[in-house]
Nucleic acid binder design. Sequence first.
DNA 1: GGGAAAAAAGTAACCGGTTACAATTTGCTT
DNA 2: AAGCAAATTGTAACCGGTTACTTTTTTCCC
Lengths: 338, 338
Amino acid sequence: MASIRDVAHKANVSVATVSRFLNDPEKVSKKAGQAVERAIEALNYKPNLLARNFYKSKSYSILVLVPNIANPFFSRLIRGIEDIGQQKGYAVLLGDTRFSQERESDYFGLVETRLADGIIQLAPEHPIAVYEGLSSVPLVNACECCLNTRFPSVNIDNAAAAKSVVDYLISIGHSRIACVLGPDESIAICPVTQHRLRGYQQAMESAGLSIDNALIFPGDFSLESGAKAAEHYIAMDNRPSAIFCMNDEMAIGLIQGLKTAGIRVPEDISVAGFDDIEMARFSDPPLTTVLQPAEHIGRTAMTVLADLLEGKTPEQLNHRLPTELIIRASTAPYKNSD
Amino acid sequence: MASIRDVAHKANVSVATVSRFLNDPEKVSKKAGQAVERAIEALNYKPNLLARNFYKSKSYSILVLVPNIANPFFSRLIRGIEDIGQQKGYAVLLGDTRFSQERESDYFGLVETRLADGIIQLAPEHPIAVYEGLSSVPLVNACECCLNTRFPSVNIDNAAAAKSVVDYLISIGHSRIACVLGPDESIAICPVTQHRLRGYQQAMESAGLSIDNALIFPGDFSLESGAKAAEHYIAMDNRPSAIFCMNDEMAIGLIQGLKTAGIRVPEDISVAGFDDIEMARFSDPPLTTVLQPAEHIGRTAMTVLADLLEGKTPEQLNHRLPTELIIRASTAPYKNSD
DNA sequence: GGGAAAAAAGTAACCGGTTACAATTTGCTT
DNA sequence: AAGCAAATTGTAACCGGTTACTTTTTTCCC
């Protein structure tokens, strides 16, 4: 493999000139530049960026910690990260934590050993205090994050978004409204479920509706758990007329379960989801949901992290991105069926 | 940041001893080992792996080139890669090519500049000859690859798998069977569509059925293109009684389109897909499809690449993993509806 | 306790870039 | 042509690990 010294020798210049030509061609005379260019061509020289990174003590890589890359919301978000990363010269390392604290800790080692310059965390596994204690790892929380930490964050207003869905269900006449939760993490780790639940509660309360705890089913964001929720509601004597699921996949699993049992959606029960994954538009019936701007979240998170890594103070530490209620055919006005 | 020299000084030993303690503790006396251990603890020393990687001229990273990370089949596959990569000490860099030749070429630069040791390619963008010409980049083709290249590959028998689905449709009485294709890449780039088409043709031919070219619709693996295929078939006078889609997402989009137009699945038209993504089980009706062992493909590809990078000749260069026909409710025996 | 072999530890070169600083060349003015 | 500033180029130290080679220490046997 040709090194910079080989190029310098072949071009009859010093290594510094070659280095300057590569990094700041303005600083090199036209004659020298051409000689270097020819030598690079002749030797098929490619700079060894491991050497540059070592000297600069920077890996130009960032790590994305994701609990499950197969989740379509996360994978869209990662596209956004990757897009900006590519533009800004950062490679994206993938850290699939699989909901394991241990794996997450292992991945933090990549930063301590300089193999990653910073982290974008999509869903923390540890209590927030653990990260606060870390010696200044550049870290950006995206979407599922605690607020009021010293880390920048990019997210949506989960409570308001959930409230907007439930408000809508109420506005079309529903009053017995169920709610399928996300994973039941402590609020100290991952408060998404809590925030969306609060939005549900606020909507119900401000409409003067009471909340029946039997209508609140603990899910885990999987299709499977949506199907389980369906079984739960089907077995009830006093079924809800509408069900709000905290993500689209549970909503789709739920609809599938209801339909299998002969319950029609939305005629018998309305169902709404959260995220607006691509599949939401193609489910049967198409799913009413809240759009989360996944790629936008990813792009923003990467932009903030890049600023952080370049020593700039990001103009804004906490980004709240807008959501949008998307009304499709899985919800319909309440009709008394008794 | 504490360096190995700081540790050596604090422990009253040489840097070589510290290095040996870290890499091969057997080579260090108990006394020295304990002193080093205490010094590491006291200084909170973490080795700078950029330095090690530089000296060893190895990045301990591999690059995954994927055309679209949001595709659930690919993201499951990446989980498999990441799993084995983690075990073998390789970090996984993500290269989302977005179907762009230029982006793909940019990513190959990561290997030339030593930032990645090798590549796992999920779907090539360039004609295979381009890669053949590359100066010995360690590369493993997974799933959508040309055969008979000098690169190891991990895939399934696409023709046989497609044939098994179409054989099944024929076995339950269908004869007018349509086919929704994947992206129309030249066979020199990405022969998946061609192979699956061949399987379709072989099944038809060996059953003595003629192929109506009007029944072959060019899709692109997206939900959207499945919906477009639905429009196409709905507009026909002489509709097919069964439709084989080259992936599950198109099948789901197609079913949605058919149902919207009042066509029942499977009563009026049977639909089958390919891949067995998680959503297949939860579509309405649940989708008949072919299981592709996505994680297994990923794990195998990473294992082969790691062997390659460690100089071992992999015991087997071309891996063919088994598929499985999964019969669900989106297909039903042919009934003459005229 | 002497001496040889084995084990442990130390010294310093090395990897291939970058860059501070010094030296040289160029260009311009008078 | 001398003089000086600016532009260009060169030299060599540096980053923090690893490891070949040398030196020192320990072990063990007669």
